[in-house]
Design a protein around this nucleic acid. Structure first.
Length: 799
DNA sequence: CAGTGAGCGAGCTTCCGCTTGACTT
């Protein structure tokens, strides 16, 4: 038995380290945290110094018992979790849970998984840093208190099962506020003048720095240019350079993989996880841009041998993010001489991206010669400007060019074009000049990756939580990732050619979005509610300010329970006050009055989602009941117009007759559908329910019948409502409204009616939904309830 | 599931940060 047990957080890391240390060491992993606060309300004892109750979650029991056993057998246990707040806490939880004793325990840390780093760490053990542990406890307790007190407020005031938290609520806020900026944005049009001089290979573009807001001014300018002389007034050439970006962190990897490969952040992370487990890359959840000395040398060797000495330049990067804890290296290939790897296409592409970025980060800068030519116009005082750029040395650009979110902006302007040989005083031949109407652009909606970037800038969230946070806000229905169609927009183009000026009107598509994050109505309502009642929590600086206090705790300058007390008491007061006084939040908005009846038209969120209401709530029997209609996908209570709202009442609508029965189009909870003779057909997305023709409807009904017939295996004379069908997951019996799976040992085609009935009777009706969600399972059917009888709920809080 | 938007009301939902596989539908 090995004398030493060394525990790290990640199993892949454990494997590597075991190779470095030899027989005297057993290296195991804790798989992250091994304990957490209990789920129940009594996890934190508010009145007793915020004492915590921890438990080992079910999925960690096995790991813990194995570690316990090994720890008992070992002479010395080395706690080698990461050197950051969470890592220190993991060591402490291990110490407590495994029942370790101080003389036989060492705490060690390293920032890179290299043999010298590990050996050095072992020579320099220390004790658990309880200040750091306290800082983590403060973080953990604060997040629990915030999350588990705020969420229930939402259940009461907005809708059950919603959630709020220090991180997710700010993420939603960013998206809601950006959407509002986009919606209130008014595009401003201005004419941009571009001239083309010279012929053929010597042709080049020049631009007028000023823009004209009025068409008349642009026209006048072109008019003035008809007989004008153009001359190069000044010519300036200067060297410029561009430097490579730092190697990847989690967030920059997510951004580049999104821009260059189109991966979602969760896809990027799961591919990176595979690469890590295969030993191709270093750890992928990191906020550090640092490379180990071993890596610097390996990169230097690779660059020198592959590209030559002049392409290499050693660089050490410093992190720019304030909250960075830098427990690991930057993300880099484990072996720089491996330009590509075995694996599927996605893995290969991500690996190559990581390899290029890391290699480029150690390469020389690219050198350019930038030329600016200013061109005077004899009839005007303005000058045209031509920019040219010639690359003199490619440097790092040989392998990698970083992309940016706002890429397409400059590209079209010929910013980096090559200019022909020019000289000062040279007369130029105008070939063509255009004045094109261009529009200012609204701020860009967030993509998953650009949201991560923003969160990182605000110091909110950690490398391990970016991807899960993005999923959470989508799963809660606060945010949707969507494509939206743009709309056509006209713009004017004036062209001067020869001595003639022509005008034309062109159209372009604008506002189309792909893979952008949009707030839902519920997201907006929840956000507004939180901003109104808990501004301090959803403040963009809240995390930064508590982080500062956590740092003070980590340095031993502050008592963590005092810090939490100072936060909690007023916060809890707000919670209690809000529960008592706040109205239910529905996002209600009045759109106006119905043009014919004069009744009030309003929108709000109801039990089944956003809807329009015409007429007041009936509080008296003599009054008429109001009319309701659900909003369609893509519509929102915040932006819908009165006209669009009234459109919704044009459904349900009879679109024709078929086989003697009417066909009706309506919108249901699951979207638009056609009903016919008590059968239902969903409308495909691309068909507008208001435009369905009789022919289309018949076609759809027939198509549905055909599809159903393909699924049908057998029917019965005894009861037409009983069928055997082939479903997505195999054959099943449709017994009236109940679907029953057919056991594997039965042949579906040979089942008799009686057998079907028996199977149906044996199936508990748990799939049926009651009015308030899932129907309770029949009491007698569940004799052995696993759960202990529910605890008595704490009596209602005193008022 | 197929046109609702009350209330009735037992018992449930929920946080952030560390880690990976185990899961059906």
């Amino acid at each position: 038995m090995a004398k030493n047990l060394l525990i790290v957080e990640s199993p892949a890391k454990a494997k590597t380290i075991e190779g470095y240390l030899g027989k005297d060491f057993t290296v195991k992993s804790s798989y992250g945290h091994i304990r957490d606060l209990v789920k129940s309300e009594d996890a934190i004892d508010i009145n007793n110094n915020f004492n915590q109750r921890y438990e080992v979650p079910a999925d960690k029991k096995q790991v813990v018992s194995e570690l316990k056993k090994l720890a008992k057998e070992a002479d010395m246990v080395w706690l080698a979790s990461d050197e950051d707040r969470e890592g220190e806490a993991i060591s402490w939880h291990l110490f407590e849970t495994l029942g370790l004793k101080e003389p036989d325990t060492r705490r060690i840390v390293f920032h890179e998984i290299t043999k010298p780093a590990i050996l050095k760490a072992i020579e320099n053990p220390r004790k658990i840093n309880y200040n750091l542990v306290n800082a983590q406890q403060a973080r953990r307790v604060l997040d629990r208190l915030v999350g588990f007190e705020l969420s229930p407020v939402l259940w009461k005031k907005v809708k059950p099962s919603l959630s709020a938290g220090r991180v997710q609520s700010v993420a939603v806020r960013l998206i809601v506020e950006r959407e509002r900026e986009v919606n209130k944005f008014k595009a401003e049009a201005a004419f941009k003048v571009v001239a083309i001089f010279g012929q053929g290979r010597n042709a080049f573009k020049a631009e007028l720095p000023e823009r004209f807001s009025q068409q008349a001014d642009a026209e006048k300018f072109l008019q003035d240019c008809v007989k004008a002389l153009f001359e190069i007034r000044s010519l300036e050439t200067r060297p410029t350079k561009r430097s490579p970006a730092a190697p990847f962190t989690t967030s920059t990897l997510q951004q580049e993989a999104s821009r260059k490969l189109g991966y979602s952040v969760s896809r990027t992370m799961s591919i990176a996880q595979k690469l890590y487990e295969s030993g191709y890359i270093t750890y992928m959840r990191t906020d550090s841009v640092n490379l180990s000395d071993t890596a610097l040398n390996a990169a230097a060797n690779e660059i020198t041998s592959a590209y030559g000495d002049k392409y290499h330049q050693q660089r050490k990067y410093k992190t720019k993010s304030a909250g960075a804890q830098e427990a690991h290296e930057a993300i880099r290939p484990t072996y720089f001489d491996k330009h590509t790897i075995d694996g599927d296409g996605a893995e290969k592409r991500l690996y190559e991206l990581i390899w290029k970025r890391a290699i480029a980060s150690q390469m020389s800068e690219a050198q350019f010669e930038k030329t600016v030519a200013k061109i005077s116009i004899s009839t005007r005082k303005e000058e045209l400007v031509a920019n040219g750029e010639v690359m003199k040395f490619d440097g790092f650009l040989k392998v990698y060019l970083e992309s940016h979110d706002d890429e397409d902006d400059n590209q079209a302007d010929g910013e980096n074009a090559i200019l022909p040989p020019l000289s000062k005083g040279q007369q130029l031949d105008l070939q063509e000049m255009t004045a094109t109407e261009r529009f200012s652009r609204p701020p860009a909606r967030y993509t998953e990756a650009s949201l991560v970037k923003k969160l990182e800038e605000l110091g909110i969230g950690r490398p391990s939580t970016y991807a899960p946070t993005i999923s959470t806000i989508q799963n809660r229905g606060y945010v949707v990732k969507e494509e939206r169609e743009g709309r056509q927009r006209n713009f004017r183009v004036l062209t001067l050619k020869g001595n003639d000026i022509t005008k034309e009107e062109k159209t372009e598509n604008t506002g189309a979005e792909r893979g952008k994050l949009f707030p839902t109505d519920i997201g907006a309502v929840v956000n507004d509610f939180l901003v109104q009642h808990f501004n301090g929590i959803v403040d963009f600086n809240f995390t930064a300010s508590v982080e500062k206090e956590f740092d003070e705790i980590a340095q031993g300058l502050k008592d963590w329970t005092k810090m939490i007390r100072t936060f909690y008491d007023p916060f809890h007061k707000d919670v209690a006050n809000t529960i008592e006084t706040a109205e239910k939040a529905t996002g209600e908005r009045e759109l106006g009055v119905h043009p014919e009846s004069g009744k009030k038209v309003s929108v709000r969120i109801g039990r089944y989602g956003p809807f329009v209401q015409v007429g007041e709530n009936a509080n008296d029997e003599s009054e008429e009941k109001p009319l309701y209609a659900s909003l369609r996908t893509g519509q929102s209570i915040e932006t819908i117009s009165l006209e669009d709202a009234l459109e919704l009442f044009k459904l349900p609508k009879v679109v024709g007759e078929y086989e003697g029965k009417i066909m009706k189009v309506a919108i249901g909870r699951f979207g638009p559908y056609i009903s016919h003779n008590s059968a239902f057909v969903s409308l495909p997305k691309e068909i507008d329910p208001l435009d369905v023709t009789e022919e289309q409807a018949i076609e759809l009904i027939e198509a549905k019948r055909k599809k159903d017939a393909e699924k049908l295996i057998k029917t019965f004379d005894e009861d037409p409502d009983v069928k055997i069908l082939n479903g997505r997951w195999g054959p099943y019996i449709e017994f009236g409204k109940l679907n029953v799976k057919i056991p594997k040992d039965k042949e579906p085609a040979s089942l008799t009616y009686e057998e079907c009935k028996a199977l149906a009777d044996a199936t508990p009706a748990t799939t049926k939904k009651g009015r308030f969600g899932k129907a309770a399972p029949a009491k007698a059917a569940a004799p052995a309830a696993k759960k202990a009888p529910a605890k008595k709920k704490a009596p209602a809080k005193k008022k």
